[in-house]
Simulated scan of single mutants.
Amino acid sequence: MTPAARVQAAIDLLDLIIASARDDGAAADTLIARYFRERRYAGSKDRRAVRDVVYRAVRAYGDPPSSGRAAMVGLARADAALAALFDGSAHAPTPLGEAERGPDGSRLPGWTAETFAELVDEAEQETLLDRAPLHVRRNPLRASDADILARWPDARPIEATTYGYALPAGTDVPDDGMAEVQDAGSQLIAQACHATPGLTVLDLCAGAGGKTLALAADMVKDGALAGRLVAADAVRDRLARLTPRAERAGYGGQIEPLLLDSGREEAALKPLVGQCDLVLIDAPCSGSGTWRRNPEARWRLTPARLDRVVALQARLLRLALPLVKPGGRLVYAVCSLIDREGRDQIQQIVRTDTLWQLVHSAGSEQAPGRSWGEGTLLTPAHDGTDGFFFAVLEKPC
């Protein structure tokens, strides 16, 4: 492909991504992979170059552009080398019109401006769209610190995490159980749970089990998981991915998967009422704290979608409270920096359920983050992590 043809390919892909975001269709990565499967003539350099410029455009606009061409025109107006590729040659975009301009607006969705204005300053808002680092969590059952450094000599330990390492971008991480790709923020939340051997622990929104495996690492005694660790989720395909991951990590048969019936979760969870030393709710959310990893998600988030996830989060919290035994803990987390999903949810709990005590942990070298309402806030600029809110509540004996 010529450089100009790559630009036209990026325009075509952006048209697909914009439409898919509007219609809640396939993700950008899926669309890009499908596009190149149908165009075998594109080599690896072509694919990489097109992908890079596509995501450059996606990161540039908080609201979906009107078209792929509009998105690329916006970039070209600030990049003479890119503008020169609008030359009208074979497979290239037609020349830029004098009146053509790119989309206006910030890198955040326009309707969220007031939401983020209170939470983080403009400089921090920009970091929400920076390229994310590569973090891994060492699996103590499969590898020592020396093993990690032998495999990745450039690995750098992440302060305040027990098993975390930062790796150079693009480093290959084999799927062999030695280490799991996991942002440092997720690792810090798992550590805030204080899971220990012998406890009964429920990961209520386990998904594919990233935080479940982090909890398992803290429950190991004599080379095996000690206690009871239940991983629950309402999405069968997502939960099914935990089993092979647990096998590779050395926890085969030791973690209990629990498939929930969405909207009827109480029946499956009834045996756990009053039995859990720890319940973790890593709740479904807007994902606004992970936009640097998935910038296209900004184009999918709407006020109506936010209303739906906020309602779901409140229901999950109410579902979880009775499961915790006296003296036990509930940890609530969202990978979001929108107060309605984090701080406001916990404030509602402490106002209506006065028995619960808050456990604050932010603000020290050992516990990064900032106190935010009744919980802790992690942001890319302040902590080098994805954006998270989490809170730890304890039920008195």
Rank of each mutant, 00 (worst) to 15 (best):
I338G: 05
S371E: 08
R300Q: 13
V310R: 14
L330F: 01
D237W: 00
P295C: 12
Q366A: 14
A234T: 09
Q357W: 00
Q345E: 08
I255Q: 13
I346V: 15
E265P: 04
I281F: 06
A320R: 04
S262G: 04
V350Q: 04
V279R: 10
T243R: 03
D237A: 06
N294D: 15
V324R: 07
G342D: 08
D237P: 00
Q254F: 01
G363P: 05
N294K: 15
S364F: 00
S361A: 09
V350S: 05
C285F: 06
S361E: 13
Y332P: 09
A234W: 00
A333M: 09
A304E: 15
L330V: 06
E365G: 04
T352Y: 01
G375A: 05
G373F: 01
D282V: 08
L280Q: 14
L321Y: 02
A268Y: 02
V235P: 02
P322Y: 01
G327R: 08
L239H: 02
V334M: 07
P326C: 06
L280N: 13
A268W: 02
R293W: 10
G373A: 08
S336G: 09
P326K: 09
D353T: 11
C285G: 10
G289K: 14
R292Q: 12
R238I: 02
T243W: 00
R248W: 00
I338Y: 08
T354N: 08
A311P: 08
P244A: 01
A362H: 03
S262L: 11
R340M: 05
R308N: 14
I281L: 14
I338E: 13
R298F: 11
D282K: 04
H360M: 07
K270W: 02
D237I: 01
R293L: 10
L272D: 10
P295K: 10
R351P: 02
L306F: 09
G363E: 03
Y251P: 11
A283W: 07
R300A: 11
W356Q: 07
G253A: 05
L321E: 08
K270G: 02
V334K: 06
Q313T: 07
L306I: 15
G328M: 09
E365Q: 07
W291I: 11
D344Y: 00
V235Y: 01
A304L: 14
L239I: 05
V235F: 04
A283I: 09
R241E: 15
P368A: 06
R241C: 04
S286C: 13
I346E: 04
A283E: 12
P295Q: 09
V334A: 11
G363Q: 02
V279W: 09
E265R: 04
